[in-house]
């Protein structure tokens, strides 16, 4: 008897994100006003647009945090109308804060997030190494890290908890030039390891060189694709 098809591997080229005429309200106002976007596996998509254009809301819709009022949406094969709870554990949303515990070491932070999904010690070590926060740095309390090291630790937490879609809101903010280079390298490494990334950024030159595709978000709509 054949095994039942695994829905996650049935269609390898199935889009990771697929929104069609998506409308999302923040209070009475439509922060997304009919956005349509498709993100395929392995892409790094840059969302660009002015403040208040709807970039952050688009990320939060994809993370299953903001419900759709109208339109259709699927993330990692899950319907955003009926399966938002199933989306959250597989998506990593990194905003302006890193979600780290300052009194815990880098390793303890990554281990905590990994343990929530049953990650093994080897997986934790691999996550630390992949984001270049292993070795002696792993034993340093998070509060003693530089901004770039904190960012990379937060990304290691996403790796440890096996997030497949990374939604990054201004990931380069607060980093110096070296930190930005290192962040870009780690993001490329993450994609090479199977992640898909959507980045909202105002730093167009930096994020643009990283992205495989750029999308304009204007007044809650996805206007153009470069």
């Amino acid at each position: 008897m054949d095994a039942a098809p695994d829905p996650e591997h049935e269609h390898p080229a199935r889009p990771v994100v697929e929104l069609t005429d998506a409308v999302a309200l923040l209070g009475p106002y439509p922060a997304l006003a009919g956005a349509t976007i498709r993100v395929d596996p392995g892409e790094i998509v840059l969302l660009r647009g002015p403040n208040g254009a709807g970039k952050t809301t688009l990320l939060r819709v994809c993370a299953g945090l903001v419900p759709l009022s109208r339109g259709e949406g699927r993330v990692l094969g899950h319907d955003l109308r009926t399966e938002r709870a199933a989306v959250r554990p597989r998506v990593g949303l990194l905003g302006h804060s890193n979600g780290l515990y300052g009194d815990l070491t880098v390793r303890e932070n990554v281990r905590f997030w990994g343990a929530l999904v049953g990650a093994t010690g080897d997986e934790i070590d691999a996550a630390l190494e992949r984001m270049a926060v292993g070795g002696r740095l792993a034993e340093v309390p998070a509060r003693k890290l530089s901004a770039g090291q904190r960012r990379r630790t937060a990304l290691a937490c996403l790796v440890a908890r096996r997030a497949q879609l990374w939604l990054l809101d201004e990931p380069h903010a607060g980093l110096d030039a070296a930190g930005r280079d290192q962040l870009d390298d780690t993001l490329r490494a993450a994609v090479a390891a199977g992640a898909t990334i959507v980045v909202a950024s105002h730093e167009l030159e930096r994020a643009g060189s990283l992205a495989t595709r750029t999308v304009d978000v204007v007044a809650g709509q996805v206007r153009s694709v470069a």
């Binding site: 993370a63 299953g64 554990p89 998506v91 990593g92 997030w113």
Partner: peptide, 11 residues
Amino acid sequence: DGALDALRVAG
């Protein structure tokens, strides 16, 4: 550092 939010976001 937004850890409670991160827990919530992570489902």
